[in-house]
Design a protein around this nucleic acid. Structure first.
Length: 605
RNA sequence: GGUCUCGUAGCUCAGUUGGAUAGAGCAGCAGCCUUCUAAGCUGCGGGUCGCAGGUUCGAGUCCUGCCGGGAUCACCA
């Protein structure tokens, strides 16, 4: 399914670099180091395609920047057919690449269904963990960023030739779910998602909120009775009951386990609806109820090896002060696991399951410290593969007034948000008065594609590392630097191609010698030419934002081309064929780029 | 307090090993639909890149300090 010849744009940049190295040997008697040769894109305000920065070469030439540039320019024009002309401005050598090169690139690349994608290699897979929800509350905007990043990064890694396993680790046990269970027992009156007519995750989430409310009341009462705030929080009967329930769960109490299985089942049904709507699936789902006891063996092993130590109370620690960190608890005094213990175990499990070349964890940056520790602790036990753990640390989604807080009710619910986006898509489309001929099903499908595109693009266009702001007051835009703008560009291209086909125009071979490119055509070719590199960089940096920004630029560039030049209406047959082919090429790259972001593109909108 | 991180136009964001006069979108103003989809295109205004030093031929980008925001430093996950 994937095919792609060697990367041509990497090749020309390499070719230029190599030739400059040769030039310095010939002209100045000494070869310059490859790293000192800087070949970059020429800025749009200057004439040329690639620019060589000559300043680093002056130490060899012992001449002025201008003269050095002139000499190198002459050499390149003389030795490379691809270099047609050059100009020198302030020590920058701007090279004009021949039309033939660009048209040759067009000829070989335009027809490829997966232009820029690498063929899958034989290496061990990358395991990407993302989503990783708790089962006591519905998914919110923070999870949405996590899920979209995890999915997109997985697709991007695949496009770079890696095998990928998408995994989810569901936190299905613990005090949090017991709180929901207890609240359901006390005030649920036998409610189920079916009876209540609501999504299971919402129902369970409501009981979690209910618990919290009643718990707070109890704390209030206890404080009035003279207890300190902390004492009250510890001793409130509801909390004690929830803890009792957790013990029951761990001892395998049938009733508790039954209720637990039922309520988690409701939650999974709810999550599935949300995942499905987002177009997300996993290759494997792990459950903490299966893995929470893992990791103790690693702790034992570490004790034997003497890399961990036990305190008097029986708790086990790892001393990381050599690494600039402090001591880290690995096992409680009562022998029970902490978060770190489990994560040691699940990392091992995942390693055993897949022998991955890389273990990627899509987890918020508030856990940076945790992952530093995880790697160090694993390494202490001699697990060299810990080096392959990569924490894809992403920034929080903040509201204009700060972070989302569930107790202040400012959490943006994923389903609600998607509903609102869908409404916006419907209204916008209806206001524009397009496609009254669409069936209700077709319309619904279009609104779905547009709303998901708007939301996903809004989130993925931001550098994962950075915090981002979401303003719930303003609905996500459909104009400008947005998903729908790019989707629109695709639909526009398809429309032109449809009309051309309907008019009986066949796109035949283009005679490259019959015309020269217009500036807007070449701008597009140059951008398309960059795509393979962008993909590799996005994979290396695990950054969907790089692709998002690239495809936006491509769409913007296409729209300018579209306004400036006739495509199907161009009278010159060769030019017309070329422009149609170029448009189709842009459409393909838009589609595959957006696909890497998990965004579909419509043929009509 | 220690560690990490961020600070670019009114707002949301680009700016990939340091390279030319710092770019987009939104919002505002002014234009463009008898011509391939106006969810589009064109133009205008808007910046001491938090502040101060330093390294360099060259700094939004690297180093130091300061100011401001955030995260983290749990026998929580």
């Amino acid at each position: 399914m994937y095919f792609c010849p060697p990367n041509r744009n990497i090749m020309i940049e390499k070719l230029l670099t190599q030739t400059i190295v040769r030039a310095t040997a010939k002209l100045y008697g000494r070869e310059v180091a490859n790293e000192l040769v800087q070949v970059q894109k020429t800025r749009p305000e200057f004439e040329g395609d690639f620019t060589v920065v000559v300043f680093p070469l002056l130490r060899l030439s012992h001449k002025s920047p201008e003269q050095t540039a002139e000499e190198l320019g002459d050499f390149l024009v003389e030795h490379l057919v691809e270099v047609e002309a050059f100009n020198v401005i302030k020590g920058f050598l701007n090279l004009v690449i021949a039309d033939a090169y660009w048209l040759d690139f067009f000829e070989t690349a335009a027809g490829q269904a997966h232009f820029g994608f690498s063929e899958p290699g034989d290496s061990d897979p990358v395991v990407v963990e993302f989503s990783s929800p708790n089962t006591n509350k519905p998914l919110h905007l923070g999870h949405v960023r996590n899920i979209l990043l995890g999915w997109s990064v997985s697709e991007i890694l695949k496009s770079a030739g890696r095998k990928v396993v998408k995994v989810n680790l569901v936190n299905d046990r613990g005090i949090h779910i017991c709180k929901s269970m207890l609240a359901w027992q006390k005030w649920g009156e036998g409610k189920t998602p079916e009876k209540a007519g609501m999504k299971g995750d919402k129902l369970v989430g409501d009981f979690y909120v209910k618990f919290d409310k009643e718990y707070k009341k109890e704390i209030e009462t206890l404080i009035q009775q003279g207890l300190s705030k902390e004492e009250a929080a510890q001793q409130a009967p509801l909390l004690l009951e929830a803890k009792q329930m957790l013990r029951g769960w761990e001892e395998g109490d049938e009733n508790v386990r039954k209720l637990w299985a039922d309520m988690n089942g409701w939650v999974y049904d709810g999550f599935d609806v949300t995942y499905k709507r987002m177009g997300i699936e996993f290759d494997k789902t792990y459950y903490e109820s299966d893995t929470y006891l893992l990791g103790k063996a690693i702790v034992e092993e570490g004790l034997e090896k003497g890399v961990f130590f036990k305190k008097e109370d029986g708790s086990v620690w790892c001393d990381l002060s050599d690494e600039g960190l402090d001591e880290k608890l690995l096992l409680r005094a009562d022998g029970t696991s902490v978060y770190m213990t489990q994560d040691l175990g699940t990392a091992q499990l995942r390693y055993d399951d897949y022998h991955p070349s890389e273990l990627v964890y899509v987890v918020g940056n508030e856990q940076n410290y945790h992952f530093d520790v995880l790697k160090l602790v694993l390494k202490k036990t001699g697990r060299l593969w810990a080096e392959n753990i990569r924490h894809l640390s992403y920034g929080m989604v903040e509201l204009p007034h700060g972070r989302m807080k569930s107790r202040e009710g400012t959490v943006v619910d994923a389903d609600d948000l998607m509903d609102e986006m869908f409404e916006t898509a419907r209204k916008t489309t209806e206001e524009l008065g397009k496609f009254d001929d669409f069936s209700p099903e077709e319309s619904k499908q279009l609104y779905h594609i547009l709303s998901q595109g708007a939301l996903k693009y809004f989130i993925l266009k931001v550098d994962p590392k950075k915090n981002m702001t979401f303003n719930p007051e303003e609905s996500i835009d459909f104009n400008g630097h947005t998903g729908p703008f790019i989707q629109y560009t695709h639909a526009r291209i398809k429309s032109v191609l449809r009309k051309a086909a309907a008019a009986g125009i066949e796109i035949r071979e283009v005679d490259k010698t019959a015309f020269s490119t217009e500036p807007k055509e070449k701008d597009l070719l140059r951008l398309l030419h960059e795509f393979p590199q962008i993909l590799l960089q996005a994979a290396e940096n695990m950054s969907p934002a790089m692709i998002a920004n690239f495809v936006y630029e491509l769409a913007r560039e296409f729209n300018q081309f579209y306004h400036e030049l006739p495509i199907a209406k161009e009278p010159d047959t060769q030019k017309r064929n070329f422009r149609l082919g170029l448009s189709a090429f842009v459409g393909t790259v838009i589609r595959s780029s957006m696909g890497l972001l998990g965004i579909q593109v419509p043929d009509r909108m």
